[in-house]
Design a protein around this nucleic acid. Structure first.
Lengths: 341, 341
DNA sequence: TCACTAGGTCCTGTCAAAAGG
DNA sequence: CCCTTTTGACAGGACCTAGTG
């Protein structure tokens, strides 16, 4: 196959000028000690047009020592289940970085890197956003290569910044909301099996549930410390046997399962029990009736993460930041005063 | 800031050998006319270890003229709404390409490229998967650069291959399913506003609905040619006024909306009307009761697209292919014989 | 000062050729 | 002269500094 694309030399030869001139017509803003005849400039531009020449980005990256590429790591779990908060976060991250001066190319890494092997193209990126977590090897490489990175909803190593939702405050909001409605027997359904094991939100929500409930002198309903499995069994145990009047769930998937199971068992929400979850607004849009939820503010998390990353890229020496985002209660149809109050 | 990463020269200097020797220790499979003293090899490997040297991928790309990167284009709509077929497709695409010999780095391009400007890093990728469609400029660049590409669920330009579901056959399956159950008044709800305008599936499903219904001598129910807006209005018009006993919807979001509206209006599914949709298996998992649907086989589409792309990369001269995937009926809880039959 | 150019730089991979025995 | 081991020079494409007439 013949050479299919033109390069700088080709343009230079055809325009009968040197490569440097072509390069500077393309890149250097005219004015600061740089000039060309209008005629030469025209000639060069015409040849570029004819050959449809475009600079080879790889070569450009090599000389400029920067790629204007930003990688979002952890796409495998970000895309795995429906309506999780990372989708929203990714969207706002992309928006910000797209519109940043100069423009960055945002790209979600989808490869399921086998355990123990970091395959992050650290040499190819100017920065990274980590969704919740990544492998130790990846963290190590990011740190060693001095790649600026921000972790969204998770913790970082030494040099990375973080943006996390304030789950302690969110759980307090939840309990407070239900207590104000008159609930006394409030249960908590933890994360389903297979969820991100060891994620801090699992621990924080759980512990805060226990401490808040105890602080108010209310009964801690059993099952809060187990991972969530069967929604039907859970309802039988928590509603029928333990007489709970309200359930807080770790995420929207639990809530969805519980709604379906309740429908199946002939129990009504919120007549027979109130239900609320931690999740993102967009996840609740698919549910009916409208779920009361603690908004994790994933859009805002994404925006802040992206801005912080830009700052870190611009200003390599700056110190890491750790930001906590306040969560918000959105009161809709699945919570109300308990029946017997 | 001091130079933070080691390069080939550094290794060579410290190991007291030439750069080429280091390079060959790293890359050339030993055996075919290549050899080093065990001692030299050890020395080099030790230095590499010490400096934690890793080849600069950008430079490597430049010399090798290939990046082992594959870009998935169209991420903006692939991630925009929940449970759409592209998520499944992306997952299977990634699986295949990850495990391909040599391994490819799959990356989803998320940038919302402004109209008219192709910003595809065509120079940086070895191949592309297009989800449904991309801008004309992008197609143009892919073609001109001879980047192998496969379009999933959409049409390509001259050199690209395509994998599309057979919507004509799928609509025939739907109508046939409902007719066999005894339905005579079958309606079709088209794509919601804001969906991919002009996508062939909208046209094909709609036209096939009309032609199949007519062929069977059944009444074409009005509303089939309008974009879907309010689920409640639709039900009032189609079920109450037009006495339809079954509705086929363009996608799972319509179906979800209709289920919620039916619940609100006090109509039961499938007692009062049957409902089915075109969608992906994973989208229906979040619905209750279980939706009868036409499976678009997005997993299979992804697998085939990825394999075709690998073939095209390996074999640049090969002719484009256009593959149609058979759709499948999955009979669940939302369709049954009509009440008055 | 103006209008332009030569040649080094970024970093790795390759190949012909040289060194060592 | 042969074989093994190693090397130097250059390609790859764009950018940039120093420099020329």
């Amino acid at each position: 196959m013949a050479k299919s694309v033109a390069n700088l030399s080709d343009v230079a030869t055809l325009a009968k000028v040197s490569k440097s001139t072509v390069s500077r017509v393309l890149n250097n803003k005219l004015g600061n000690g740089f000039s060309v005849t209008a005629e030469v400039k025209e000639r060069i531009l015409k040849v570029i047009e004819e050959l449809n020449y475009k600079p080879n980005l790889i070569a450009q990256d090599l000389t400029k020592q920067r790629t204007r590429m930003i990688s979002v790591l952890g796409g495998a779990h970000a895309l795995s289940d429906l309506g999780n908060i990372y989708q929203t976060a990714i969207n706002s991250i992309t928006n910000i970085l797209d519109n940043a001066p100069g423009g960055f190319d945002v790209t979600v890494d989808m490869s399921h890197h086998p355990d123990g092997s970091s395959e992050i193209p650290a040499w190819r990126i100017d920065g990274a956003i980590v969704l919740a977590r990544c492998s130790d090897e990846t963290f190590e490489e990011l740190e060693q290569r001095n790649v600026p990175y921000v972790v969204v909803n998770g913790s970082s190593w030494e040099k990375g910044s973080t943006v996390v939702p304030d789950d302690i405050q969110g759980m307090k909001l939840s309990v407070d909301h239900l207590v104000k409605l008159g609930h006394k027997r409030i249960a908590y359904a933890s994360a389903p099996l297979g969820h991100l094991i060891g994620h801090s939100s699992i621990e924080e929500r759980h512990q805060t549930y226990v401490s808040e409930i105890k602080k108010l002198g209310l009964p801690v309903i059993e099952g809060h410390d187990k991972l969530f499995t069967s929604a039907e069994d859970y309802l039988k145990s928590i509603i029928f046997k333990n007489k709970a009047t309200a359930i807080i769930t770790y995420g929207h998937m639990n809530a969805l399962n519980l709604m379906q199971a309740a429908h199946f068992l002939g129990i009504s929400i919120p007549q027979n029990f109130s239900l609320m979850a931690f999740c993102d607004k967009c996840a609740t849009d698919i549910m009916s009736p409208g779920l009361t939820f603690i908004d994790l503010q994933s859009k805002k998390m994404g925006e802040i993460a992206a801005s912080m990353l830009l700052e870190m890229i611009k200003n390599p020496g700056s110190a890491r930041k750790q930001i906590k985002i306040q969560e918000q209660l959105v009161f809709r149809d699945t919570t109300s005063a308990p029946e017997n109050s």
